[in-house]
């Protein structure tokens, strides 16, 4: 018998702080696997748990352009969340369809995204530990954390990319290096629109990705919303993600 997983689709884009608060609330209350899709408003930067905020982000540019900044609970690099779809999966590490092994679990979830991208006409490949590439260029990145035996993995999926804007929010002071990096990033990053030449409705992308998870994990999905306990925890967590103490931690 197929496992039944929860599926939460945010119909409207929400803030970085709320998005991170919901992901961690779902992890705290996870007694059944839950897959969530969401977008961001305003556009935001998330930095990895161990990154130096001042080194990574042009804070003044972000303030002037209404771009929120949040430190993730997960490691990895800084991400500019603008024209993208983000997913998160919370699942108990003892789930029979899942591997406890760190590397295998990253791979396994990325394989679901690969299957979803395939349904949209793209041939993506997994590049350990946390990247997916199409035609040699990065289209998706992800990061994972574990707490109380529950895995939380969240990841991006670029729908459209503005590399110049992406780089204005990065703190690279040396112009010479900056040019090199922009050139490098432009060559390394791609999006669903770039690769397919099509403008998909976001619901069609979500549908394809959900199907990818179904194929990968042999599960069924039940449309779901946050429970009252999850909402309560989300509000508690949101205060932390909004705080200078957390975001300026290092």
């Amino acid at each position: 018998m197929k496992q039944e997983w929860r599926l939460i689709i945010e119909n409207e884009p929400i803030s970085a702080y709320e998005n991170m608060a919901i992901d961690t609330a779902l992890q705290s209350h996870c007694d059944q696997p839950v897959l969530r899709f969401y977008t961001w408003k305003p556009a935001s930067v998330s930095i990895g748990r161990f990154q130096n905020l001042y080194d990574e982000v042009n804070i003044n540019y972000c303030k002037e352009n209404n771009i929120d900044i949040v430190r993730r609970i997960t490691g990895g690099g800084a991400v500019f969340h603008d024209q993208e779809l983000t997913y998160s999966l919370c699942i108990n590490e003892d789930n029979i369809y899942f591997s406890k092994d760190l590397h295998e679990s990253y791979k396994s979830i990325c394989e679901a995204i690969i299957k979803g991208l395939s349904l949209l006409g793209m041939d993506a490949k997994y590049v350990p530990i946390n990247d997916l590439i199409v035609n040699g260029k990065k289209i998706s990145g992800c990061a994972q954390t574990r707490k109380n035996n529950v895995i939380l993995q969240h990841g991006t999926l670029l729908i459209k990319v503005d590399v110049d804007k992406m780089f204005k929010i990065l703190n690279v002071s040396n112009e010479k290096i900056k040019d090199k990096l922009i050139s490098d990033v432009k060559q390394r990053v791609t999006s669903i629109e770039n690769e397919t030449g099509k403008k998909f409705q976001i619901n069609d992308i979500i549908k394809a990705m959900t199907e990818g998870f179904k194929l990968q994990f042999k599960c069924d999905f039940l449309n779901s919303k946050l429970t009252q306990d999850e909402i309560n925890t989300m509000y508690e967590n949101k205060v932390i993600f909004e705080s200078n103490k957390w975001n300026h931690e290092r």
Binding site: G48, F50, N52, T74, G77, L102, I129
Partner: peptide, 29 residues
């Protein structure tokens, strides 16, 4: 691998300050 950064101060041949940064993954965080 990933980008690894440190801020370090050494006094009398001993580390007196150290912070480690980067886009690596480390568990538990």
């Amino acid at each position: 691998g990933k980008l690894l950064k440190i801020k370090i101060s050494v006094k009398n041949e001993k580390i007196e300050y150290l912070q480690i940064f980067g886009d690596f993954f480390l568990y538990p965080e």
